[in-house]
Design a protein around this nucleic acid. Structure first.
Length: 311
DNA sequence: TCCCAGGTGTCGC
DNA sequence: GCGACACATGGG
């Protein structure tokens, strides 16, 4: 069996999957396995080519290219970022990072679970929800990686879990959901799942709304505030100007853009980011976020001098 | 042991 | 309208 090859210029798969947009891709050998909607996928990067494998779907190359937003004009988007030191450093550091197109319910549900959680915890929650409520899919490993001389042994098969539907979550209970390490978020996820499953809110139809209206509708859902709504708008509705402000971004804004401001509330920060970062603000935000998070230094209890090994 | 995490909802002023 | 606080859980 051959891996299907699709062109992918201006793209960094590992950076994109590690940038806090999605939380379920698992690293294996030279690539990653995960689900794109209902479809299980193995994908690895070889320069400007993605090599992919699935079960049988012929539409897979298009599904993968669409998911990773390979059609986004990344050069133009990055060129539209503001020209300042923090932004320039992030742009350089995050080369090839793309804002991907996620299934709406999966994105909404995952980010409801994300509040006050570290990325590692969100990954745990995503995995537990998938394992407990999702459906299994299998992918045969790429032939190039079959172990020679072990033909009699069972060949490893990648098991992938799809994200459970709103209907499936809605049938669950708060108690069951809490077993997935959701804590107080369990009730928010359950109620939102029921609203979506009942059809009272049609996530696909919301896609026709303006940014302002879409954000307002999302914020009506329990567990969804300005930050989560902006994440869902950016990662699932392709509203590339949506600018989520979490603790990381707020820290960056205060340190790099308002170093001596005293009164900075959420409203003022949001107004600034919309104007300053513009139409591709969501991309800029993602670059700033990933750069800060992956170059962080431990600040607690140890001085920088200690970290550098100098006494 | 303590601090922190891709926040939200509620309450008192 | 704004600030303070509670809310679960696990890694560092």
């Amino acid at each position: 069996m051959q891996l299907t090859r699709i062109p992918a210029t201006d793209f960094d798969l590992a950076t994109t999957l590690d940038s806090g947009q999605v939380f379920h891709w698992e690293k294996v050998d030279g690539g990653f396995v995960g689900a794109i909607g209902e479809q299980a996928v193995y994908v690895e990067q070889d320069g400007e080519v993605l090599k992919i494998r699935d079960g049988e779907a012929r539409a897979l190359p298009r599904i993968v290219a669409n998911y990773f937003a390979l059609d986004h004009s990344l050069a133009e988007i990055c060129a539209s970022f503001p020209n300042d030191p923090a932004m320039n450093a992030a742009r350089k550091f995050c080369r090839g990072l793309r804002v991907i197109r996620q299934p709406k319910w999966e994105c909404l549900a995952t980010f409801i679970c994300s509040s006050m959680k570290q990325v590692a915890h969100i990954r745990q929650i995503s995995r537990k929800l998938r394992e407990r409520f999702g459906e299994t899919r299998q992918i045969d490993p790429p032939s190039s990686r079959l172990r020679r001389g072990k033909a009699s042994q069972t060949i490893d098969t990648f098991i992938v879990y799809t994200f459970p539907s709103a209907e499936r979550i809605a049938q669950s209970s708060e108690k069951e959901l809490r077993k997935c390490a959701l804590g107080y978020r369990a009730k928010n996820l359950l109620v939102t799942a029921r609203v979506v499953a009942s059809g009272d809110v049609d996530l696909e139809k919301l896609g026709t709304l303006s940014n302002v209206d879409l954000r307002a509708r999302l914020c009506e859902l329990p567990g969804v505030g300005a930050k989560v709504a902006n994440c869902v708008m950016l990662f699932a509705y392709e509203r590339l100007s949506a600018f989520p402000i979490d603790v990381w971004i707020e820290r960056i804004l205060r340190e790099k853009y308002f170093p001596r401001a005293r009164k900075l509330n959420a409203k003022r920060l949001q107004a600034f980011t919309q104007k300053y970062f513009g139409d591709h603000g969501g991309y800029a935000q993602q670059y700033l976020f990933h750069h800060a998070r992956t170059t962080k230094r431990k600040r607690k209890g140890r001085s920088f001098v200690t970290i550098l090994g100098v006494r």
